[in-house]
Each structure stands twice: as C-alpha cells, then as structure tokens.
Amino acid sequence: MRLSGEYLFDGPREKVWELVRDPKVLTSAIPGAQSMDQVSENEYEGKMEVRVGPVAGVFSGRLVVSDEVPPESYALSVQGRGVIGFARGSGRIQLIDRGDDTTLMKYEGELQIGGKLAGVGQRLMDSASKSIVRQGLESMNAALQAPATGEEGKGNAPV
C-alpha cells in the first residue's frame, strides 16, 4: 500500500524539524501511541494501539531514522507487530521552507501489512492509515502553536 501526501505546518522549518524528531511529541501526537523510547541515536521502540475496522490490538514496533539531512529530510523505516498481524514500511519525509514561516511537509512511503490486519482490516486499511497520519500531523501542528511543547497536543482530535 502506498501512502503519500503533503501537509502545511504553521511554523518555521527548524521548529517543525525539532518537533518531528522528538519522540515525546510523536508519542502524544500519533493516535493510539502508548510509548516511544529512544534506544540508540536513530532508533526508537514503542507500543501503539491500532484499530482498523473490526480489528484492534497493541502493536510493538521499532522505528529507524536514516539519511538525515537536518532540517530538510530524512528516511524512515517502521516495523510493528502484534497479535493482529504486522506492518512494515519505509518512507521519506521532506520539509520545505516556504519562506513565510510556514513549512510544507511532503511524505511518501510503502506499507505492507499481514495477518488479521490484512485479512479482515484490509478494506479499511487505506482510510485508517490516512486518518492516523492526518490526525498525527494535525496534533503536531497544534503542538507547534502551543507555547510549551507536548502536553496540549494530545492526539485525540476528532476524526
């Protein structure tokens, strides 16, 4: 499954960069994320509650960042799995300074799913993953506006 899109942040590129590279912010922004621990400079491990249609369960996952070009771009690979199946993906994120204190994020990636998630959730996977990404980005944008980072931007925006 391909996942790609754009999102406009209301803030300068350096701040957006800090935000997207901060595990705490990611934990609070990604819907369902329960924890995210940095295990080495570019590796994170975490848990996330995933719900796709009738399929729900906790995923344990690992996220690896590579090819970092601060504050412009980085590559990302994720692997997650749980009793409901697995997901593996890789992608690239690019931040473009629009010069007006806004930043355009472009992202593209490939996601492969398996197990119950594929067998039962597949029909809804496309919209579910898009919605997770959108909610996550919106929460981060909200966090960007908040004076103190993190807490206010809890990822519970309505769908």
Partner: peptide, 13 residues
C-alpha cells in the same frame, strides 16, 4: 496480494 496475504478473510469481504 503480492505478499500472499489473503485480503478478504471475512464474510463481510
């Protein structure tokens, strides 16, 4: 799918 995942493993699909 191309990975051998059965994509309609329920009576809903």
């Amino acid at each position: 799918d191309e990975n051998g995942q059965l994509l309609n493993a329920s009576l809903a699909d």
